[in-house]
């Protein structure tokens, strides 16, 4: 934005701001769809290529089923298997993700508030990430059994880390000048936290939450692999040795659908809560 405004700054600013605002409010949805256009085009092209390749190269369906047969299986097995499996996995993902939001943000605030706690815990937290999450699955299954608890915990564990790290970074990256200024404007530690530090951390926090949203379903599937009686991961592990490859693919499709919906919800929340992040940084 240009700084050159003389005495007529006000009028010029108005003229400048007015069209900008209307443009912002114009048609964000249509614009987003237009931005998604190329990606959808590539996806459709790949699916068509896949279908044609399977048909013309006569690939056996147990090795690589064509998309049409995956969809057919999805519809056929929806009522008997897939609906309940999707519901089970969705619950694990949703509960685990919600738990990771609460614990992750809470933990980050705690570490931010106390440098002592931070020095004691933060290195351990980073170190804990060297443990592959896959090996934790069986241990949790041994401890908690075949119920929903170990799956939820795995989702929480896998989502927790990106949320904590980005939230702490966001809280710590607040301009020190801003905090000094708050001190001279009657700002207490609490008012500085809620009026400056927390809002300033939101963009960084949301980038962590978006990453976590894509990890969440991985946690649920690992949990189900380690021991379960239902869920999309369970369906995959049952279908694979039976060569029901199209059922495996149908489960994968549903799983990625869960991730996409979760990701979209997070993006929507971000647009509602942090609308200033795009334009606000100057």
């Amino acid at each position: 934005m240009s700084n050159v405004d003389g005495n007529n700054g006000a009028s010029r600013g108005l003229a400048e701001a007015a069209p900008k605002r209307s443009k912002d409010k114009g048609s964000p949805l249509r614009e987003r769809l237009r931005n998604l256009g190329p990606a959808i085009g590539v996806l459709v092209g790949l699916v068509v290529f896949w279908e044609l390749a399977c048909r013309f190269l006569s690939v056996p369906a147990y090795i690589l089923p064509p998309p049409s047969s995956i969809i057919a299986t999805l519809i056929k097995k929806w009522d008997t298997t897939l609906a309940s499996a999707t519901w089970v996995t969705l619950s694990e993902v949703a509960i685990g993700f919600a738990l990771s939001l609460i614990t992750g943000i809470g933990f980050a605030i705690l570490l931010h508030a106390s440098p002592h706690v931070r020095r004691a815990i933060y290195p351990l937290l980073i170190g804990s990430q060297t443990i592959p999450i896959i090996v934790i699955g069986p241990i949790l299954a041994i401890i908690f059994g075949y119920n929903i608890v170990p799956k939820v915990l795995l989702v929480t564990l896998i989502c927790f880390f990106p949320i904590v790290v980005t939230t702490i970074d966001g809280l710590a990256s607040v301009d020190p000048q801003l905090k000094r200024m708050m001190k001279t404007l009657y700002g207490t530690a609490w008012s500085t936290f809620r009026r400056v530090e927390f809002p300033a951390a939101l963009p960084s926090m949301f980038s962590g939450i978006r990453v976590a949203a894509t990890y969440a379903s991985i946690g649920a599937v690992f949990g189900e692999y380690a021991g379960s009686s239902n869920g999309l991961g369970y369906v995959m592990i049952q279908a694979t040795p039976q060569m029901q490859t199209s059922l495996v693919f149908a489960a994968i499709l549903l799983l990625s659908l869960i991730s996409v919906v979760l990701f979209a919800l997070v993006s929507l929340a971000e647009r509602l809560l942090v609308p200033w992040a795009k334009e606000g940084r100057s």
């Binding site: 934005m1 240009s2 700084n3 700054g9 006000a10 600013g13 701001a17 606000g280």
Partner: peptide, 18 residues
């Protein structure tokens, strides 16, 4: 302060002087 009418605007919508 020469800011009348801008109360509900966000900082990025204003010029440096404002």
């Amino acid at each position: 302060f020469g800011l009348g009418g801008f109360e509900q605007r966000f900082p990025y919508e204003l010029s440096g002087g404002m």
